[in-house]
Write a protein that binds this DNA or RNA. Structure first.
Lengths: 127, 127, 127, 127
DNA sequence: GTGGTCTAGACCACC
DNA sequence: GTGGTCTAGACCACG
């Protein structure tokens, strides 16, 4: 069963998108693998403190992307066959890499200052 | 006149927030300084291909933060007196530092892989 | 449920203000009482032929005045406790009294002609 | 020369409309007559403390209604021939009569209370 | 030309 | 279904 313990709700970005991103990052990290079971909509909505409809929307979009399979009466589970996992990881790294580099550069940081900034908050992120 | 040449419209984030962030990053970088003139709502909205009202909202919020001054009939301009510039830079570095470190860590990257990712896209960001 | 049957849209005055005034006059008249339910934004906007946002603005201002309470997913309702109703009535009578007397006087009517004018259209207003 | 001494600027209604209404009420009252001269745009804008463009807009609309005539280099003047004065007065009385009666009735006043309200503020309006 | 406001339509999260 | 927010276009007053 996939754990959502590390999930923290941000504001200013749609919740269903946060759920998508959380799962995709787990796939990229390898902590979420092919066949892993997702919590039911009801359980996850209670866990995150959001509306079941919002979880439902995230699951629907994941299914449209082919990243999960749902069978009525059974738990939904992750599908990473056919290079799906690699594709997700590649897309995520590229998007985030570009966005992060652009942000750091727009703030006028040198490469060294940027790397130092990452270092400063790196430990926090691991907790 | 402040340049928006480096601005690229993203999706999934409110446009007025992107304008806010772009300006704040410029302030943090020092490329935007005290007294600099902002493009008018119409000019900027045409430049970005968005509605004048969206630009207006960003400018209004900046004015509420005390970072710009607006007078009807005259160009709006940046106000950085009283340590405002430093405050903006500090806030921005902390927020982005945390967010970036969290994202990199959630993707399961080691510190070295994370720094390598930044490096890979760093040159792109400088162009 | 508060009725908007008697509402007629005028021009030259912001619609959201007309909605505000209509509700306040109802409160002053006593036809709108504490705890009464308001139509939802969608229902009222369809009824008046205006945008839901325009209704939303009127409701938001009323909430800032403390005259209504809104909870997501539930109908908004009128709050008249704490002498709110009396205050609304007093303000309304004074404002309208002044404005009406000024208009009648500017048109050069004598007091008798003014009263006669009211009389002429009084019956119409009651229908 | 038509006097604007009694003109008081209200808020929430376009200024150019207030100028139109002020003049029409004067025509209805008979204090403004055929051939009366209007102040120049520059003089009136200074008198009312508004922008010349705003006065210009009011004069343009009046001219489109045929209520004033402008000749370059000469003062604009009121034109009430052809029953224009009567028409203005009739329209004004009907519109205001209806609006006033409706407002009083919506506030739940009886006919007697309504007349008493007019009386209460009548003296104020004459000052 | 400038900034400010009003109205409009679509989307999001919630019950 | 509910309320709340974001984006869009037109209008107003002003320099």
């Amino acid at each position: 069963m996939i754990s959502f313990d590390a999930f923290v709700l941000a504001e200013g970005v749609p919740i269903y998108q946060q759920i998508l991103t959380f799962l995709k990052r787990g796939i990229a990290a390898g902590t979420i693998g092919d066949g892993d079971e997702l919590p039911s909509r009801r359980v996850l909505s209670a866990l995150l403190g959001v509306n079941p409809n919002t979880v439902q929307k995230a699951y629907r979009l994941l299914e449209e992307e082919g990243l999960i399979q749902s069978h009525t009466g059974a738990k939904s589970c992750i599908v990473l066959s056919g290079g799906r996992g690699e594709r997700v990881k590649r897309q995520l790294l590229e998007e985030d890499g570009r966005r992060i580099a652009a942000a750091l550069h727009q703030m006028g940081l040198t490469r060294e200052e940027a790397l130092a900034l990452i270092d400063r908050y790196w430990e926090e992120g691991t907790q």
